[in-house]
Structures are given as structure tokens and as C-alpha cells.
Simulated scan of single mutants.
Amino acid sequence: MSQAVEVQNPTAGAVSSVKGMKKNGKQWHDNKTAFRPRANQTSWDKRTLERKALAANKAKEKELKEEKEAERQRRVDAIRTKRAAKEERERFAKMEEKMHKRRVERLKRREKRNKMLKS
């Protein structure tokens, strides 16, 4: 019942990756490497390009926000002018109930002249 068990030696590349047992017994952790603080630094040219790209991005966002705000402001102004015109029509309608129609028309013309002079 004795069978010859053939044991093959692992290749040289596999042996070099194994460096023996760790002293603390935590073989599942990676081996530490030397501390190199400048390892992750980028070149000056690369940083300036990134800054330019970021500045362009911010400028575009600002432009889009300003356009959006201008559109919103335009709608608000349109609503305000509509409301003012409606109030004025209602006011003149009340005046027409009390006064003669021609007199109300004269007052409208006079108010328009005064508005033109003030502005």
C-alpha cells in the first residue's frame, strides 16, 4: 500500500512572494512599504490644468444659474405688471360707477401724462 507521492517544488516566482511567517501572526494583512510622502504628488502642469478645468466648470455653472435667475425674475416682473394693470382697471371701473365715463377717460389721460413726466 505504499504509493510514491511525488512532490513538485513550486516555481521560483511563487517562492519569492512568500517571505515567511509574520511576527504578529496576521498573515492576511499586506506587508508594509516604505513611507514616501511625495509619492502621490502631481506635477505643477497637471495641477494647473485641473485648476483651469475647475474654474471653467464653475464659470459655466454660474452662467447657467444667472440665466435661470434672470428667467425667474422676468416671470416675476411679468406677474407684477399684470397685477398692477388689473388693479388699475378695477379702480377705473369703480370710478366709472360713480362718475361719468368721459370724465374717467380724461382722468386716465391725465394720469398717463403725469406718469410720463415722473419717469
Rank of each mutant, 00 (worst) to 15 (best):
Q73W: 04
R91V: 02
E90W: 05
L107C: 04
R80Y: 01
K94N: 13
E61P: 04
R110W: 01
K60N: 14
T33V: 09
K62V: 00
R102T: 06
A39T: 05
H29F: 05
T81E: 15
D30H: 09
R110Y: 04
A85Q: 09
E66C: 07
G25I: 04
T81D: 09
N31W: 04
R51N: 06
R91T: 08
V76T: 13
A85H: 11
A14I: 02
E111I: 00
K60F: 10
E97I: 13
E61M: 13
R80M: 08
P37H: 10
E6D: 13
E61S: 14
V15R: 03
E61V: 08
A93V: 06
S2F: 09
L117T: 01
R102M: 12
V5M: 11
E67V: 00
A93W: 00
G13V: 04
S17T: 11
Q27N: 13
K65M: 06
A78K: 09
L49C: 04
E105F: 01
T11P: 05
H100K: 15
T48A: 14
S119W: 07
S119K: 13
S43F: 01
A39Q: 15
S2R: 08
P37F: 06
D45F: 12
N24D: 15
A56P: 00
R47M: 12
G25N: 02
K32I: 04
K108M: 02
K22G: 01
F35H: 12
K32V: 07
R47G: 06
R91W: 03
A39W: 12
D30C: 08
R72N: 06
K82Y: 10
E61Q: 15
K68S: 15
R80H: 07
D30Q: 11
R72A: 13
V76N: 10
G13C: 00
S119N: 15
E61T: 14
P37T: 10
E69H: 10
Q8S: 02
E105M: 01
K101G: 04
